[in-house]
Computed example of a mutant assay.
Amino acid sequence: MAEVTLGGNPSNTVADLPAEGQTAPNFKLVKTDMSEVSLSDFKGKSVILNIFPSVDTEVCAMSVREFNEKAASLDNTVVLCISKDLPFAQARFCGAEGIENAIPVSNFRNDSFGKEYGVELADGGFKGLNARAVVVVNPEGKVVYNQLVPEIGNEPDYEKAFKALKDTQ
């Protein structure tokens, strides 16, 4: 369990992020066409997990835009933008914003994702939603970087995530 804040108010996650060097837990999430996708579908590629509460908030939307822009120049890398938003809301946002390089996916059907990745909020105003976090997984399926953003209203450290990614390629 870790503590984060939302507007300065403390909130706890249900567990900790997967540790660097650990095999990333597999998952099944829902794409905007309602099909399922798993981490194992991207075996042999680097995967950036951009995890956040809702695409309908300003900072979450910024992180999707930022990862989408940076993903355009990455080889052998997939960016998954993960929230509990319904796939319809994700599709609407990504269509309006021209998001083409990042894949929006939802864990609305799969509560185990938030528990296994330690991002589900256990209390506070966003209880049940994902905390803001980034996890970078190398082509061998190992976690090479993780960040649980201490204040949910702040953006993640993009530079450190992309440095960890480049160090593995």
Rank of each mutant, 00 (worst) to 15 (best):
M1R: 10
V4M: 01
V14W: 11
A15T: 10
A15L: 09
E20D: 14
E20W: 11
Q22I: 08
F27E: 08
K28P: 04
K31R: 15
T32G: 08
L39A: 04
D41F: 00
F42S: 00
K45I: 02
V47G: 02
L49P: 03
N50K: 04
F52T: 05
F52S: 04
F52L: 08
A61E: 07
M62H: 15
V64N: 01
E66G: 01
N68L: 02
N68Y: 00
N68T: 02
S73M: 07
D75Q: 11
T77R: 03
V78R: 02
C81E: 06
I82L: 13
A89N: 10
A91G: 05
R92P: 03
F93D: 00
F93I: 01
C94K: 01
G95W: 00
A96R: 03
E97K: 01
G98W: 00
I99Q: 04
E100T: 12
I103H: 07
P104V: 14
V105K: 13
N107K: 11
N107D: 15
F108I: 12
F113N: 10
G114Q: 12
G114P: 14
K115C: 09
K115H: 12
K115V: 15
G118T: 07
V119S: 06
V119P: 05
V119I: 03
L121A: 06
L121S: 06
F126Q: 11
F126T: 07
L129W: 03
N130A: 09
A131R: 04
A131L: 04
V137A: 06
N138I: 05
P139T: 10
P139I: 11
P139M: 10
K142H: 13
K142W: 12
V143S: 11
V144W: 07
N146Y: 03
Q147N: 11
E151M: 10
N154C: 13
D157Y: 05
E159R: 09
E159I: 02
K160N: 10
A161L: 02
A161G: 02
F162Y: 01
F162P: 00
K163A: 13
L165A: 05
